[in-house]
Design a protein around this nucleic acid. Structure first.
Lengths: 301, 301
DNA sequence: TGGCTGCGATAACTTTTAACTATGCTAAAT
DNA sequence: ATTTAGCATAGTTAAAAGTTATCGCAGCCA
């Protein structure tokens, strides 16, 4: 295997430029013998003479000229590596793969992506939308870099940052608009529509109603909050949704929303990433963007 | 000024490849601590972390991935400096890594290697036998120098040299020896044995029979021409093989071969290499050797 | 011709860098 | 709780690259 060093290539370039060992050595801040030796070793490694040393001047051989052409490209590429690093230092670069659970993604993502596009214009953002256990797996495997989920998780390998708390509101048919706000216990007697298994939001809703392990009813699970609200609009039952979903989801169905009296159901939204991720500092900054997006979203309704 | 060494880049590449300090260090023939230190110095020089070290695996950061992309180009260019020097010395020397597809290798290689041994006695020949897409990949990565494949490929990064055209012949059981030569259409009604997916020869055979996308039959794919011929000998069906395979493959099974009437199925065999490879002139000479080997082989049967 | 002079090569020695071995530390796995 | 796997660190040694001093050769000028 070829045993070239970048130093040799740089020395070579200097010698090409000055055509004089002493001057080139000065330019490289080394002594003339050091340069002589390195050039000689380069020639030995290549098995080719690069310079013709005449009494008055040092000049490239034909092969040396061809060689110099390529060396220029290489040295330039190496210098660009440094530029690349300098440009990237302390900043999110390249690809960012972000996971979001389905009960957050449709509401928060537009804002987040918009904000990220402004703050990091040349960041290549990939989004993965799926339930928490899968996100955890993909985070562990390094298939995503961070995730926005409901906390707490208590995964020891992950850093968790809580961003904001968010209440759940009751969605019921327009016809029920005047009725009193049900208590968590009376809720249990109503026909409560839920997301299908696997969504943490389902478990949070169930837990608020104090259902033990017993699922209230079979066969009425929706695959998204949008579906649930449409079902409520059709008079099939009632459901809970997080505040951030209110604006988007209640526009297209004859339903009304109402806050609960205390104690109110709620969830904590946060961001997670591997503790080992070297971009921790940057991800923490990113989490501020997400927090702000969430705050804006909950202010409106 | 950036103080990278070429060694560090090679070590970096090894670590990218293996994702494991110990294994990468072995591949570089140094100890694990030496590798750790060099990677760390590289990271320090750049001011950027290249790898995320988790307990079980080492994986590139987003920046590291970007970096790796550029490093590949640089390392390849440096390797080509060595090739350039070799080429300038006028002859192929040292190592020549040549890839060959499986439907050519067993028949053409003995002749090629014999001829190369005569014309370039101190050439260290490595052979890689695998399907075309892999050869293309390995050629791009600089893991082989040239490949003998079926043309055309139309890879813009490669030089293609067509060497010779070669017909395919029908192989059927000895019992069928007297029967008339089937047309390409009647062939479709027979039980045609094919190589498994991935071999270009399979596609060429299918295309001759005018099978659209529909594969004729399931579960009868062979992993080599030798297997196919043996299956034919056992009376399971018929198959196509290239002329160069006739002598070797039909010796050990009760089968007979017959040429097709026009239009005859055929393939073009050629050699490819990276356009940037400074050994182009030598590879062109080499291609003459291969052409001659192919001609000799097809003259005999 | 003979002594300068400019310049690259060589030699002997020193410093710096990169390697090795041994060992530590942390996080999975059992 | 203990073992295991795997990267990091420390201390030491070997190799590489640099230094100064000196050589040798070719051209130059008297």
């Amino acid at each position: 295997m070829l045993n070239l060093t970048f130093k040799q290539l740089r020395y070579f370039q200097a010698l090409v430029r000055y055509g004089h060992f002493g001057h080139a050595a000065d330019a490289c801040a080394i002594s003339q013998p050091a340069l002589s030796v390195q050039i000689k070793e380069l020639e030995t490694a290549l098995g080719m003479i690069l310079f013709e040393r005449t009494a008055r001047q040092v000049r490239l051989t034909a092969f040396g000229a061809e060689f110099a052409l390529r060396v220029r490209g290489i040295v330039q590429s190496v210098d660009e590596l440094g530029d690349l690093a300098r440009a990237a230092r302390g900043r999110l670069t390249g690809r960012l793969r972000i996971g979001v659970i389905p009960t957050i993604a449709p509401y928060l993502l537009p804002t987040i992506i918009g904000a990220l596009h402004q703050s990091h214009p040349d960041l290549d953002i990939h989004v993965r939308e799926t339930v928490t256990p899968r996100l955890i797996q993909e985070l562990s495997d390094g298939r995503i870099d961070t995730a926005v989920v409901a906390l707490p998780l208590s995964e020891p390998a992950f850093t968790e940052v809580a961003l904001f708390d968010e209440n759940f509101v009751l969605v019921r048919p327009d016809a029920d608009a005047g009725k009193p706000v049900p208590s968590r216990d009376s809720l249990r007697a109503m026909r409560l529509l839920l997301l299908e298994e696997g969504h943490c939001f389902r478990d949070q809703a169930l837990s608020f109603c104090n259902f033990g392990g017993a699922v209230p009813r079979e066969g009425l699970d929706g695959s998204s909050l949008a579906t649930l609200v449409q079902m409520v609009g059709a008079g099939i039952g009632v459901t809970l949704i997080p505040e951030m979903a209110v604006r988007v989801e209640t526009r297209s169905a004859p339903v009304c929303v109402v806050r609960f009296n205390r104690p109110r159901p709620s969830r904590t939204v946060g961001m997670i990433w591997r503790k080992t991720n070297p971009l921790s500092a940057q991800l923490l900054e990113l989490s501020e963007v997400v927090r702000q997006a969430g705050a804006d979203l909950r202010k409106l309704p």
